[in-house]
Structures are given as C-alpha cells and as structure tokens.
Design a protein around this nucleic acid. Sequence first.
DNA 1: CATGAATGAGGATTCATTCAT
DNA 2: GATGAATGAATCCTCATTCAT
Lengths: 214, 214, 214, 214
Amino acid sequence: MRQSYRGVQMADDIAGKLKSAAAWLFTQHGFTATRVADIVANAGVAQGTFYLHFENKPSLFVALIDEFFAGLIEETIARHPAKRLQTGEHLSAEVEEIWMTIIRYGRKHDILTRLVLREAYALPPEQRAHINRHFEQGADALARYLEDAQQLGLVKNLPARLIAWLLVGMIERAMHYAVFVAPNAPSVSLAGHCTEFELLGLLEPSAARTGGES
Amino acid sequence: MRQSYRGVQMADDIAGKLKSAAAWLFTQHGFTATRVADIVANAGVAQGTFYLHFENKPSLFVALIDEFFAGLIEETIARHPAKRLQTGEHLSAEVEEIWMTIIRYGRKHDILTRLVLREAYALPPEQRAHINRHFEQGADALARYLEDAQQLGLVKNLPARLIAWLLVGMIERAMHYAVFVAPNAPSVSLAGHCTEFELLGLLEPSAARTGGES
Amino acid sequence: MRQSYRGVQMADDIAGKLKSAAAWLFTQHGFTATRVADIVANAGVAQGTFYLHFENKPSLFVALIDEFFAGLIEETIARHPAKRLQTGEHLSAEVEEIWMTIIRYGRKHDILTRLVLREAYALPPEQRAHINRHFEQGADALARYLEDAQQLGLVKNLPARLIAWLLVGMIERAMHYAVFVAPNAPSVSLAGHCTEFELLGLLEPSAARTGGES
Amino acid sequence: MRQSYRGVQMADDIAGKLKSAAAWLFTQHGFTATRVADIVANAGVAQGTFYLHFENKPSLFVALIDEFFAGLIEETIARHPAKRLQTGEHLSAEVEEIWMTIIRYGRKHDILTRLVLREAYALPPEQRAHINRHFEQGADALARYLEDAQQLGLVKNLPARLIAWLLVGMIERAMHYAVFVAPNAPSVSLAGHCTEFELLGLLEPSAARTGGES
DNA sequence: CATGAATGAGGATTCATTCAT
DNA sequence: GATGAATGAATCCTCATTCAT
C-alpha cells in the first residue's frame, strides 16, 4: 500500500520501520535477545512481513551495518580523496575535518554506532565475516591515504598498515567516547584533540627534545 | 583423583581442562555456537560436571576473560607504576616496554586475545557489562598514568580520559594486528612503531614546522 | 481474455495451466513440498489467482485425481459393461483388453499415475477419504463384474469382494510396473501376462494336476 | 532410570513408549498432523527426550516401518527359503501357509499395517525412498522365489519381476482387506482363497477348457 | 565428586490464504 | 477477473541446566 504526499511517493516503507525498530531493540537488548516478534511488534507489522523484506534476522542487522559504513565512508574518506596535499597545514586541516565528521556521524547515528561497536560480534560467523570486511576495507583505505601522504613527505615512514589499524582502533574508541563516555563534550574540541594526538603524539616538545629521537 | 607436584595441588584440574577446551571452541565457532556439550566432550568429562565448576556457560567465558585481563594488567601497568619518571627518555623507554609486553602477551595468549577482541559482545548483557568494566578500568588506569606524566611536564595537556580511550583502541587493534594481520612481524619493531606513533604522532617534523601548530 | 476455436471456448484456461504445473511439481517434489507459490510461478499467474480457481491446495490435487479416475473408469469398466459374456474366450479377450487399456492409460497419464499411486496419502484426512472412495468404487465395480461372470459360470465362486481388492492391488502394481519399473516393456505382452496370471494363476498345469485340487 | 524385574533389566523403554504412542497417533491423525508434542505427551515424556531417542519425526516413522518389514520378512520368506519344493502340492501348501502368515501378521500388527499401507507417502522424500526400498526388496525376494519354482517346473514361465510386483499388490490389498474391509473373516479362509486365486486364477476350469489357451 | 539421561522453555521461519486495489 | 503484498498460525528442534544415582 502506498500513500501519496505532494506527489512524492510515500511508500509505507515497511523495511524502514523494521530497521528502525530493530536498531533500537538491538541496542537495548542485544542482537540475540531481540526476537523477530519484538521487531515486528514495534514496527507494527505481522511476523511474516518481516521475511518479505529481509532474509532473516542477521540480514537485517547486516543491512543496518552496511548503511552505517556506506554513510561513514562517503562522508569521510570518499569526500577527502588522496588529493594533492601540499603542506602539513593542509594535512592538519583535513585530518581535523575528518575527525570532526567522524564524531558528528557517530553522534548523529548513535544507535547504529552502538550496534557497530558493540553488537556485531553477536552475529553468526557468516555475517560476522561480512562486518569484518568493512573494518578491513577501512584499514585499507587509511593505509592508502597514509602512503600517499608519505610519498608527499608529509607523514613519517611508519608501516602504513600497522598505523592504519591503530587509527581504526582510535576511531572506534573516539566514537565510543564521543557517544557514550562524554556525549556532551563539544565535537570541535574532541576533533582537535584527536588530531593533535594523531599528528604530534603525546610527548611534550620540551621533553621530546631530550628524549624523543629513538 | 589428585596428584601432587612439589607440594602444589595438581588436581585433575577439570576446571582447567574445561577452560582450555572452551577457549579453543569459542575462538573456533564463537561463543553462541559452542555448546556446553561440545566443551565437556572436548574436556573429557560429563555434562553435569561442568556445573560443578562453573555457574553456567557465560561464567566460564567471564573466567577466561578475567584471567586475560588480570595477566595483562599485572604485566603492564602494575609493573610500571606511576613511578617517578624524570625525563622524556624514561617515558619513551617505559612506553616502548609496555607496548612490547602487550604485543607479546597477545601473541602468547592468542586464543584468549581472540576471545576478548571478538567474542565478548556475544555474551548476555550482564556478563557483557562485566567485560566492559575491564575496559573501563583499563582506560582509568591509563588516564591516571597520563595525568601523572602530565604533572611531570612530560606529556601534553590533552584531556586524559579521551586520550586514554584512544589508547585503548590502539591497544586493541595493535593486538589484533600483531596476532591476526601480521603474526610474523617482529614484536620489537611493532612496539617501536607504536611507541613512535603514540609519542610523536604522524606528522613529518619538517612538515610539522610549517603546519603543525593548530 | 478468451479465445475461440471452432466454437469451443478456449479460455486462457488458467485452471488448466495450474493443474499441469501442479501435477508436474507434485510428482517432482511431492504434495507437501510443493508450495502454492511454486505452482502459480510455473503457471505464470499471481498467488491470489489460484484461489479463484481452486478452493485450496488439496482441492487441486483432488481435481487431478478425480480426472484420472473418471478417465480410467470410462475407458475400462464403463466401456465393458457387465455385458453378456457367453464363453470363457469372450471373458479372456475382454480381460486382456481391459488390462491393455489400463496399462496404456497409466503410461499415457504417467504423471497422474504417479500422483495417484504415490502422493495420495500425503493429503489431509478429508481429501484422503475422498481418494479412498475412488478405490472402493473401483473395487465395487470389479466385484459386480465378477459376480456377473460367476453367475454365467465363467469364473470360480471365490468371494467377489476379496478378489476385487486383490485385483485392485494387482492393477496398482501393474501400473507401477508398467510406468516406473519397465517403462519400455510392450504393453501387449504385459497385458497378456497379467491376463494369464489373473485367469489361470501361476501353477504349471502339469504340476496342478497333482497338486491343484484344494 | 531402570527398574528391575526378576533380574531382567526392565528399562523404562522410552523409545518403545514413543513408538507405540506415535504409531497410534499416526494412524489416527496421519503423519503430518501428528505433532511431536502429541507423541511425547502420549508417551509421558518431555519434548526434548524425543530427540534423545530419534533423530526427528520421520526417523521414528522409519523405525516403525523397518520393524514391520523385518518381522514380516522373517516370518514369511525367510522361513520358507527357496527350499526344494518337489511337487505342486508342496508349493500349494507353502503358498497357503505364507498367505496365512501374512494375513495374521497384518491383523496382529494392524496399526503398523495401516501405517505402511496408508501413511508412508506422507514422509519427506528421503524417508519415502527408504520405504520404497522395502517394497523393492520384497518384490526381488518374490521374483527369486518364482524363478526357483519355475526352474523346478512348478510354475508357469511368466516374467518373474512383473508377477512379483503383481503379488506385492495382492499382498498389500489382501492385508488391507483382512484388516480394514473384513476384519472378522477367518484368516484360514482368506488364505485359502488368495492361494487358489494366485495359483489357479479365476477362470472356471470348464470355461477354461473352451477359452483358456491364449 | 562425577555422571548423563531427562527436561522444557524458547523462537525463527514457512507458507496457505486473504483482500484492498 | 487478476494481482501480490500482507498476514499470522503453526511447530520442529536446540541446548542450557538439573538431579537421581
């Protein structure tokens, strides 16, 4: 059944209702404890209807995660291609912008963020592997970005894949922090601190002078 | 039947056999897909025996995780108390030693590492919360360490709790990298790179000169 | 849309398409495993259309079976009424003709034969009873035929209903044999053997001489 | 839990209780309509207990059928091996004894008989094939028996496999008749009539004289 | 302490059928 | 008549846990 609104087709969007309901319930009770019966009840449709829109429960979860990653990638890496960074200033500005986007994205999609960070490993192996692939692709993209910047002489010659994974961990926990630990901390300040840590590290320059070179 | 060895009670150690079997099966098939029946079969005891040693399946998992964290904390933070660091060199050396310990610990206990990193969120909410507390305590300890170092003027005045969480993420993914992605990379080199990244960041000093100050 | 052909209404014959599709699917996968969705997909119509032509899934099956029996009765018993058989020769010829017809009918309608012989008991009780009535009516007709022949002194005075049921069994398995076991055996020879067995039994006349009289 | 009775181990025989309950329910309501919940309720055990004794519902059915055929084979063909029949009299006597056994067996195990004759095709394909194999083996055994008797010159040279299948059909319907149609008819008379029909056929000898030779 | 047969609650999924368009 | 999206009842099987021996 479809409804019209100003000439725009406003489908009932049952799939959308199911996804919203499921996202909420998954974050509240976990993937395993959330029954399909709960999801359809929250979405206001019948049990069978679920299976017209999703193959099964894990599929719905995967659909949610895929959307999350697609959006995140699009708003960060995809929007900041390995473009010609000229100076460290450029890099700094860009990195900070990316951090800002990440933090805002996590806060905007806090429910999905929670799912990605905390529920993904409750999935059956097959879907779990699918999710892992997102992380691996993220790490790959970061590694390529680093390598480009290294060629430009902007960042140090640390092993790109290792650093990429460390950055993945930082991003995960930065989102975690921004969403759960300090949901009221200003995004701009979080982004600034993440950027400073990422680019300059922890060591106090004065201390570094005496102890920094390995 | 009990066996003695140098005065130490070497029980048949059914609990130990159960834990080994469970750890292995959990990493192979996941927490959910591993049945108690599988665990006892692998341990060579009867179903009922399981419940003489563990309250239930999640409890066994939690016991494994607790051991992992206890060992990790003991070998890292506990062994490097907020002692009087005098110089940046001291700090660098200590940080690198800690990274080294972490990487070696993960590789030594690769099965448990896998469990902590990949299975913990398959637990029911109650046990999940227990696991989360380990991470929070880890973040707390790191934050205290940072604050101490900040007071000594050795590290920058970034917000300690945020940075602590970023470090947690880095540690998680560094272990992930050391165990799964590059299991053959020398620990010493991994630790060195992690240290350099943590303390000095990514920015090439020459580039930093022009663009580093935020 | 209807098409005409020589004054005969050639409807799109959706019912026919549904029956063909169903017969095929039932023989391939069994009654239970065949879903209405499969039938309509094969027939190229929508789900709902099914219920404009048949009350439900079992009804369609029953319709197929009814056609099978109607045709079989018409071509055998109905065409060979309890007519005045005069001699054993007449009887023999008629019996052989009936066997021939049965075998050819089974082979011509092999799919339906398969259904009747192998799927009928997968139906719900109500429709099952309906099918059983066909067998009972067949046995009744055979019994009447035998009684007529007995009155004419052409066949032995064995209890007609018992023999009728034995003949039903023979017919079922003769069709089974002709369709599944030896689909290439010439019908005429099968019919001849069935006739000889039915009328004269297995015993070798020479052996019968010594052992035949009960 | 086991109980002792005069030194004999009287197991609770849960499998036996389940089989009895299931056989009864299958004949009453059909295989499909009988739920595992009904079976265990009738057997007085818990749902899960069912699966300690049978892999699933079809398996239980197959176990019942297998027992039926094992018993029937043992009491008929197996007990009357292709022994050296010397005369038609011997053959007649043996055939009659076998018919008697069959009829009594069907009546003794009337519930199982009903299952074999009427429910077997409600099974899923895999188990159905298993049941079919019993019939094929029965036909094979009959064919071998016939061939032996043919070599001894006791029975006519009709194609053994065809006749074997006709006999299978007769046996099925004879049991059907003896159990459902005329449960009170004396076994001995039924067996006599079946024997006479099988060995000598229907044709009245006087009529046969004029019309019997094909 | 150890056993392992018995328990029974729990839930995902299927599919015949309906009905608004 | 035809459509096909929506319905929701129906049920098998799993597996963590118990407890009599």
